[in-house]
Computed example of a mutant assay.
Amino acid sequence: MKSLSRADRRQIGVQSVEIAGRLLKTLAQLEGPQTLKDLSAAAALSPAKAHRYLVSLIREGLIEQSVIDGRYDFGGAARVIGRAAINRLDIMRIGAPLLIELRNTLQQTVFLGVWGNEGPTVLYWLDVPRPVSVIIRPGSILPLLTSALGLICAAYLPPDLTKKRIAKEIAEHKRSGLDFPVKSLEAAAKKLADVRARGFSVVRGDLIRGIDAMAVPVLDFKNDLVAVLAAVGPSRSIDVSSNGKPIRELKLAAKKFVALIG
């Protein structure tokens, strides 16, 4: 029997990985655990060949076989890899080009925000030349009830993450004696329900006098909040109406964001 060259053995090894990868991707595209017959057919492999690869994938924890009906599904190692891939998703890499496009289209200051350890956090900020700049920069922590970013976080995150902060902000507003738009937990609940119904948030000088802002959520396939896109500008120069250009462009950018996340 003719021995294989080193190059041939290396090529066979690559092909083996490709076939294993094909099985994993095929399983991901199918709904639920699969029989050997159905999985091999969907992957365009013979059952015998598919079985050999499945045995190795089971040994590596990437696939598991039910002891009840013999069907195949993802194993613990595959779930760990999936979680790691999601956690390493580069929000900045995806969001930065979209923000550049938004700023150029709207000619307004725009930014990308996320929910951080300290609350609603500005992650990336793109300004436009103005006589007076808005003094908010990357790393800034914004309030929940008086910022467009905060309202989106409060509206779309699980209440357990935000309810204490909301109560604290309302109490601080009452102690300050100043006039704020949200004066009670009931008013906050109504405000956040309105944000969800409209699909965007708006503040008119609530955080900085003379500065209006609006924001939209970026929601993944599970409707979990991934990021927030926002536009900011002087009250007389930015259209914050529900059918205005800024809202339309922000929502379009959010759809592009979701598509890029996959």
Rank of each mutant, 00 (worst) to 15 (best):
L99F: 12
V114D: 09
M92K: 01
P120G: 00
N87C: 04
L99T: 00
L98S: 03
L106Q: 07
D90L: 02
G119H: 03
W115P: 04
V114E: 14
R93A: 05
N104S: 01
T121F: 10
P120I: 00
F111K: 14
G113K: 07
L99W: 07
V128P: 05
L106N: 08
R103L: 04
A85M: 11
D127K: 12
M92L: 15
N117W: 15
W125V: 14
Q108D: 03
G95M: 04
L126Y: 09
T105Y: 12
T105M: 14
W115R: 09
L89V: 05
N117S: 14
V122K: 07
R88Q: 00
M92G: 11
D90Q: 04
E118H: 08
V122N: 03
I94D: 03
Y124V: 02
R93G: 05
L123I: 02
I100N: 04
G119M: 03
G113Q: 13
N117K: 14
L112K: 07
D90E: 11
I91E: 09
E118R: 06
R88G: 04
V114I: 14
F111D: 05
G119P: 06
T109W: 13
A96S: 15
P129A: 03
F111Q: 14
G113W: 10
P120Q: 06
I86E: 09
T105H: 10
R103I: 00
L102N: 09
E118D: 15
L126N: 08
L112M: 10
I86H: 08
G113T: 06
R83L: 04
D127Q: 10
L89E: 01
L123Y: 04
G116H: 02
P97S: 06
A85T: 00
L98Q: 10
P97I: 00
I86F: 10
L99G: 09
I91R: 10
G119T: 02
V122R: 02
L89D: 00
M92T: 01
L89P: 03
L98D: 02
L123N: 02
N104D: 12
T109Y: 03
L126A: 08
G116F: 14
E101V: 12
A84N: 01
W125I: 05
V110P: 13
D90A: 04
R103F: 01
D127I: 06
E101K: 09
W115E: 12
L89Y: 04
E101M: 06
A85P: 03
E118N: 02
A84P: 03
L112W: 07
L106D: 12
N117Q: 15
L106R: 01
I86T: 07
I91M: 09
T121S: 13
L112A: 09
L106G: 05
T121H: 08
T121L: 05
V114H: 08
R93L: 14
F111C: 15
N104C: 02
L106W: 12
R83A: 13
P97F: 12
G119N: 00
P129Q: 11
L89N: 10
P97M: 01
L99Y: 01
A96T: 12
R83N: 11
R83S: 07
R93K: 11
T121R: 13
L106E: 03
P129M: 11
R88A: 02
P97C: 00
R88W: 12
G119K: 08
Q107F: 12
R103C: 13
D127L: 12
R93W: 05
P129Y: 12
I91A: 03
G119C: 09
Q107L: 14
F111V: 01
L98R: 07
A84E: 00
I91G: 07
I94T: 05
Y124E: 13
A85L: 06
